[in-house]
């Protein structure tokens, strides 16, 4: 396959994926649905019924079993989806963090050892830190994140009388900006900027980490920036004056070697 052909196949794949996402009703609808389970299954699309969901799933060549929750409640998941999509929104380059399953990634990370800070130093007293000493709060990442999600809704209701996910994009940005600047009451003495930094970090990870972790859906995070993922060598490419776009490969491609 020539480089040009490779490039085209990457683009084809991207556009067909985009079409699928649009058709399957994954894009933002912002509607209140019936039960928690229903809202989870049928995403946000009010026109979709359980039947069509089943059909959509049946049409999907490989339904992704990774798209399920091990930590969030459905409503926490939805707030997260809305928030990550403002950190890394859909644009002309391609999908935003929501379509890339960054919220699934975050759910899985917070459920695991990192969410419980198992490799962090947690002994001794927690004093107020100088700016150059790093955070000294005792709260675990998983609890910080949940407190942040609660606070996003409380603050949105105070400012705009609706939940965070119901806000217009520009209003959501306003809310997130206030959080990033530490202006919002979060939980005890924990700063809202600490939550924001965690949200920001997790969103970028959810966009660009190997798809094995649940985000970077179909490696579209990588292909948007022409990153080839986990390939084993670039001896020729690195010396080439021209940019060479390669189709991304995930760690899965190294299984059975």
């Amino acid at each position: 396959m020539s480089e040009q052909e490779k490039k085209e196949s990457v683009l084809d794949k991207r556009s067909s994926r985009r079409t699928f996402i649009k058709n399957s009703g994954l894009t933002v609808g912002g509607v209140v649905l019936g039960g928690a389970l229903g809202s989870l299954l049928i995403k946000d699309d009010k026109s979709t019924t359980h039947n069509t969901v089943t059909q959509n799933h049946a049409k999907t060549p490989a339904a992704n079993p990774n798209v399920a929750l091990m930590f969030f409640t459905p409503s926490q998941y939805q707030v997260t989806q809305a928030a990550v999509d403002r950190i890394f929104p859909e644009d002309a380059n391609g999908p935003g963090a929501k379509e890339l399953n960054a919220a699934i990634y975050i759910d899985h990370q917070l459920a695991g050892p990192w969410g419980s800070n198992v490799k962090d130093y947690r002994l001794g007293a927690f004093y107020k830190a100088e700016e150059n000493q790093g955070p000294q709060t005792k709260i675990l990442r998983k609890d910080l994140f949940l407190a942040g999600l609660d606070s996003l809704n409380t603050y949105s209701n105070k400012q705009f009388k609706v939940d965070f996910k119901e806000l217009e994009a520009t209003q959501q940005d306003e809310v997130l900006l206030a959080f990033s600047e530490g202006k919002v009451e979060l939980y005890g003495k924990v700063s809202s900027s600490q939550f924001f930094n965690l949200l920001r970090t997790l969103t970028i990870e959810g966009v660009y980490a190997d798809p094995m972790y649940g985000g970077n859906n179909e490696m579209l995070g990588w292909s948007m920036r022409k990153y080839p993922g986990s390939r084993m060598q670039y001896v020729a490419e690195i010396q080439d004056e021209k940019f060479i776009e390669l189709e991304p490969q995930s760690l899965n491609s190294h299984m059975g070697h």
Binding site: K119, D120, Y121, A129, E130, Q133, G134
Partner: peptide, 30 residues
């Protein structure tokens, strides 16, 4: 890189840090 697979587990041991001799050093928690 981001979960520090090859690095020492800070839950067992870390350093504490301060920028001047008069300050109170606090642990590098991550």
């Amino acid at each position: 890189q981001h979960r520090q697979e090859l690095m020492q587990d800070l839950s067992k041991e870390t350093i504490t840090y301060r920028n001047t001799v008069s300050g109170k050093a606090l642990p590098m928690r991550h």
